[in-house]
Simulated assay, not measured.
Amino acid sequence: MLKRPLIEEYPEYTRSYISLVPDGDITDILASQSDNTYTLLSNLSEAEANFRYAEGKWSLSEVVGHLTDTERIMGYRLLRISRGDQTVLPGYSENDYVKEAAFHLRSLTDLLEDYKLVRRSTISLMKGIPQHAWERIGSANGYEITARALPFMIAGHELHHMKIIKEKYLKGDSVKG
């Protein structure tokens, strides 16, 4: 089981995300999280998927797309850092990515399938990382981070957004409107 990263292994701005991750096997947490997210959102209509709780806020489809894009980037960072690559990895603008992705042109079903595929890919990557490689340190978005911290960031980032989805988009099983 992968140990929880120490606070000095990841940037301060990610602490709130990582603090949301419960104790346990991070691989199991990521797998069950994927199932829970899919189950929660898969029965929504396209109208519900395009709901925005306020002007200028992302739609649910855009949030799902953002989660997937972010996990792809974090997974790539995990691959590079765990393999000992010392290349400084750039950051990205989440708002620009969402704006340019045109998630509204894709069905929620398609976006959720993409999300599940990316999560399976992340878990598969994690299973192939040797134990010693989890402590490797790399630079991403101007900060040092260990390979071990990245899966916890992925899980915490999603927990952060799921909290917002439940509070701002969903009321029980239906979308506010």
Rank of each mutant, 00 (worst) to 15 (best):
D69H: 02
E100I: 08
S93V: 14
L89C: 01
R77S: 05
Y53E: 00
F103S: 10
N95S: 06
S82K: 01
D96Y: 10
Y53N: 06
D85I: 02
V64T: 01
T70R: 14
G84H: 01
D69N: 15
E48A: 11
N50Y: 02
V63G: 00
D69I: 09
A101N: 12
R72E: 04
G84V: 05
L67I: 13
V64G: 06
S61H: 04
E48G: 10
D69L: 03
E100P: 11
N95V: 12
I81G: 05
Q86D: 05
F103D: 06
R52V: 01
G56D: 08
L105K: 14
L105W: 11
E55Y: 00
W58C: 10
E55V: 04
S61M: 02
R52Q: 02
Y53L: 01
E71W: 07
T68L: 07
A102P: 06
S93Q: 07
Q86R: 12
F51I: 00
E71C: 11
V64K: 01
N95Q: 07
N95P: 12
G84N: 07
H104S: 09
L79H: 07
D69P: 01
E71F: 03
F51P: 05
M74V: 13
V63F: 11
E62S: 08
S59V: 04
Y53C: 03
N95K: 12
E55N: 04
T87N: 08
T70I: 15
L105V: 08
E71I: 07
E94Y: 04
Q86T: 09
W58V: 03
M74H: 15
Y92R: 10
S59K: 02
R80G: 15
F103P: 09
H66Y: 03
W58N: 08
G91W: 15
V63R: 03
E100H: 14
K99M: 14
V88R: 12
Y92S: 06
P90Y: 07
E48S: 09
L67C: 12
E71K: 13
R52K: 09
S93H: 13
H66K: 02
L105D: 08
G56A: 13
R52G: 00
H104W: 11
T70W: 01
E62P: 06
A102F: 11
R77V: 10
Y92C: 13
A101E: 04
R83H: 10
D69M: 11
A102T: 15
N50L: 08
R80F: 14
V63W: 09
A49I: 07
N95C: 00
V98I: 00
D69T: 12
S82V: 03
L60A: 01
R77A: 15
E71G: 07
Y76L: 15
L89T: 02
T68Q: 02
V98D: 00
V98W: 03
E100Q: 15
E55A: 08
V88L: 10
G91T: 08
Y76A: 09
R52N: 00
T68Y: 05
V88N: 09
E100A: 14
